[in-house]
Amino acid sequence: MPQTDTDQNLPLVRRLEAVGFRAWPATSVQYDGSWQVRLSGGHPSKRLNCVVALDPSDSRDIGIRLEKAARKFEAHGRPILVRETPLTPKPLIDLMQADGWERFEEVVTLTLDLTRIDLPEGTLDHLPSHDVGRYVDADLLVHGSDPALKPALAEVVSSIKPPTGLFVIEDKAAGPVAVALCVQDNDLAGIMSLAVRADRRQRGLGLEIVTAALRWARMRGARTAWLQVVADNAPALALYSKLGFTEAYRYAYWRKGSST
Rank of each mutant, 00 (worst) to 15 (best):
Asp187Gly: 13
Asp185Glu: 02
Tyr251Lys: 04
Lys242Gln: 05
Val52Cys: 12
Gln184Ser: 04
Arg38Trp: 04
Leu181Pro: 04
Leu112Arg: 03
Ser241Pro: 13
Ile160Cys: 02
Gln97His: 11
Pro25Lys: 07
Ser145Asp: 07
Phe73Val: 03
Ala18Trp: 05
Ala189Glu: 00
Ala195Met: 09
Asp32Trp: 03
Ala53Glu: 08
Ala154Thr: 09
Ser59Asn: 11
Val13Arg: 06
Gly63Tyr: 14
Phe167Trp: 05
Arg200Gly: 14
Gly41Lys: 10
Tyr31Gly: 13
Ile209Pro: 03
Pro79Asn: 14
Gly77Ala: 10
Thr27Trp: 08
Asp199Gln: 07
Asp5Gln: 15
Cys50Glu: 09
Gly144Ala: 05
Val37Leu: 09
Arg60Asn: 13
Gln3Met: 14
Phe21Lys: 10
Ala238Arg: 12
Pro44Ala: 07
Phe21Gly: 00
Leu243Cys: 05
Trp254Thr: 08
Val230His: 03
Thr4Val: 09
Pro151Ala: 00
Asp131Ile: 02
Ser241Cys: 14
Asp61Cys: 15
Asp146Val: 12
Phe21Ile: 10
Ile93Val: 14
Glu105Ser: 15
Ala53Arg: 13
Lys90Pro: 10
Gly206Ile: 03
Pro86Leu: 01
Arg65Thr: 05
Glu67Trp: 12
Asp125Thr: 04
Arg201Ala: 07
Arg83Asp: 06
Thr123Ala: 12
Ala189His: 00
Arg83His: 13
Pro25Asn: 00
Leu188Asp: 08
Trp24Gly: 02
Glu106Asp: 13
Arg47Pro: 10
Glu67Lys: 15
Val82Lys: 07
Tyr251Thr: 01
Gln36Tyr: 05
Ile169His: 01
Arg215Asn: 03
Ala236Asn: 07
Ser45Tyr: 15
Val196Ser: 06
Ala148Val: 09
Ala234His: 13
Asp187Trp: 08
Arg38Gly: 11
Ala138Asn: 04
Arg14Asp: 02
Glu74Arg: 10
Thr260Cys: 09
Val19His: 01
Ile169Val: 05
Ala238Tyr: 15
Ala53Pro: 14
Asp171Tyr: 02
Glu74Val: 14
Ser258Asp: 09
Ile169Arg: 04
Ala98Ser: 15
